[in-house]
Amino acid sequence: MAVLFKKIKNLEAQIDNYLDMVVKGGFLFKQGIKYFLEEQTEEFESRLINIDTTESDADNLRRKIERRLYTETLIPESRGDVLGLLEACDKVLNKTAETLHQFSVELPFILPEVKNYYLELTDISVSALEEMVAAVRSYFTDIIHVRDHINKVQLYESESDKIAEKIKRIVFRSNIHLSQKMHMRYFALHIESIADEAEDVCDRLSIAAVKRFI
C-alpha cells in the first residue's frame, strides 16, 4: 500500500512539474516579446533558446506521465480527460514557442504607436495561459474552484480580442505598406491565439470537471 501511495506522490509531482513548465513557457514568451519590441536581440534570442528547451522537456515529461497513467492503469475513468488536458496544454506551450520563433525568423516591423498594445496583448494572453494552468491544477485538487479560473480565462480571452482589434484598427489606418500592415495583423493574431488556445483547454476542462461528478 505504501508503495502505491509513494508512486502516486511521484506522479503528482511530475504533473505539477509539467504545469510549471507551461507557466515558465508563458513567462519566457512574455520576456521574449518585450525584448523583441525593445530591440534587445541577444536577450530575445536567449529567451528563444530557453523556451525551446522548456518545450522539449515538457514534451518528454508529458509522454512519461501519459505512459505511467496507462501502464499503471491509474484513474481509469478520468484518464482520457487528463491526457486530453495535458495534450491541450502542450498545444498552448507549443504556440508560445512557435510565435517567438516566427518573430525571430520574420523580424516583423512594428509601428511604434502599437508597441504598447503588443505588450498589453502579450500580458493578457500570458495571463490567460497562467489562469488556464491554475484551472488545470484546480481540476486535480480543488474541483469546486475550477469554474472561477475558467471564468477568468474567458475574461482574458475576450480582452485579448479587444486589444488585437485595437492594434488592427491602428495599423490599417496608418500610412505604411500593405504587406507591413498584413504582417502586423498576422503577429497580433498569433499572440492573441495563445489566449484562444487557453480558452479551448478550459472548454475541455469544464466538461471534464462536470464528468467527474456524474
Partner: peptide, 11 residues
C-alpha cells in the same frame, strides 16, 4: 469536492 485531495490520491 471540498476535501482538496488530489485526483490521483482519490483514485
Amino acid at each position: 469536492p471540498r476535501s482538496r485531495v488530489h485526483l490521483l490520491q482519490q483514485d
